[in-house]
Every structure is written in structure tokens, then in C-alpha cells.
């Protein structure tokens, strides 16, 4: 595969992710995982989890973090240079943002008409509920032998799950989990 073919297929995948990514960040994760791990094998599930982890500890929307990281790695993993990797990052970031730019500009123009449009509301009625299933899938897809290596992983999972329900800052929880990892392993 030439670098141009790779760029084009990265662009198309991330455009698709932007176009069909309803429900925001977490709900978009299964779609991103499907495109970059299952459909194209650009990165492994292991790398995918690590970028989600890194995204949760760095600022900015998770979708852009994923686009930048995957764009770079998909290119460099194929043996291309790091500067071509940077271009790959830029292509994925632009591609994932374009559908939003187009759609939000249209929505802005038709704002007053769309606000109370029954057709739009009914089109979204089932989708809003399905998005909850997509987020649940994002969590289930990440439960594998790589992320859960033994019973200690499940203890960390349970503790963070409960702490998160108690509204403790997720960044603090990630730091605690990291320190726990060093102590336990």
C-alpha cells in the first residue's frame, strides 16, 4: 500500500466515524474500534485501550485524541517516517471534524425550524436509547485478556467503578489506579 492509499483510507474511515458518531465520545468508541481494529487492523486492541487511557488523563475531547494517535500510529506502523505520521494525524483529525462542520453549519441555518421539528425528534427518539447500548458495548469490548490479566484487575475495576459512582474526579482515579498497578505488579 502506498502512503497515498493509506491516507485516503484513513480519511474515509475517520469521516465515517465523524458522520455516524452519535452520542459523543464514549458512544463513538465502538465505532472507532470497529474501523481501526476490526475493519483495517491499523492498531491492536491493546494500543486502542492505551489511547483511551491516555485520553482520559489528557485534556481535550477523546475523539480528537484518538484520531491524532491512530493517524500517527497507522502510518508509522506500516514503516513510513514520523513526519508522514504527523500528516496522518492531521488527516484523521480533519476528517473526523468535517461532518460536524457541515452538519452544524446547516443546523445553525435552520435552527428555528429544527428546534421543534417532530420528524427530527422522532428520528432521534430510538437513537437516544440505542446510544446507551453503544456506551455499554464500549466497556464490554474492552474486557479482554489484555486489560484484565488476573483477579487483581477485577479488584481495581470494582474499586474504581464504585469510586466513580461517588463522583470522585476521574483523573485522580486514573492516578490512583496507576500507583496501585506499580504496587501490585
Amino acid at each position: 500500500m502506498t502512503i497515498f492509499q493509506l491516507y485516503i483510507s484513513l480519511f474515509l474511515s475517520f469521516f465515517k466515524i465523524g458522520l455516524f458518531g452519535f452520542g459523543g465520545g464514549y458512544a463513538m468508541l465502538p465505532l472507532i474500534q470497529y474501523e481501526v481494529v476490526d475493519a483495517h487492523d491499523w492498531i491492536s486492541v491493546a494500543d486502542f485501550t492505551d489511547i483511551v487511557a491516555v485520553s482520559q488523563t489528557t485534556p481535550g475531547p477523546i475523539t480528537f485524541n484518538a484520531a491524532t494517535y491512530i493517524g500517527y500510529n497507522a502510518v508509522t506502523n506500516q514503516g513510513f517516517s514520523t513526519s508522514l505520521g504527523v500528516i496522518g494525524s492531521a488527516i484523521c483529525t480533519v476528517a473526523v471534524s468535517l461532518p460536524s462542520l457541515i452538519i452544524m453549519t446547516l443546523i445553525f441555518i435552520f435552527f428555528s425550524k429544527l428546534k421543534n421539528n417532530v420528524w427530527m425528534q422522532s428520528a432521534l427518539s430510538v437513537l437516544k436509547i440505542a446510544v446507551v447500548g453503544l456506551i455499554a458495548s464500549a466497556a464490554i469490548l474492552l474486557i479482554d485478556d489484555y486489560n484484565f490479566i488476573d483477579y487483581k484487575s477485577w479488584i481495581i475495576f470494582g474499586a474504581i467503578f464504585i469510586a466513580s459512582l461517588k463522583k470522585i474526579d476521574p483523573i485522580l482515579l486514573i492516578v490512583i489506579a496507576g500507583v496501585t498497578g506499580v504496587v501490585l505488579y
Partner: peptide, 15 residues
Amino acid sequence: RVFKGIRPAVVALIA
């Protein structure tokens, strides 16, 4: 080792 601790936490934060 840090990542071994963080990975299951990531899943918990989504769930």
C-alpha cells in the same frame, strides 16, 4: 506496571 493498573480502571470509568 502503571498501565496494568490503569487499563481495568479505564473500563470502569466508561461503565
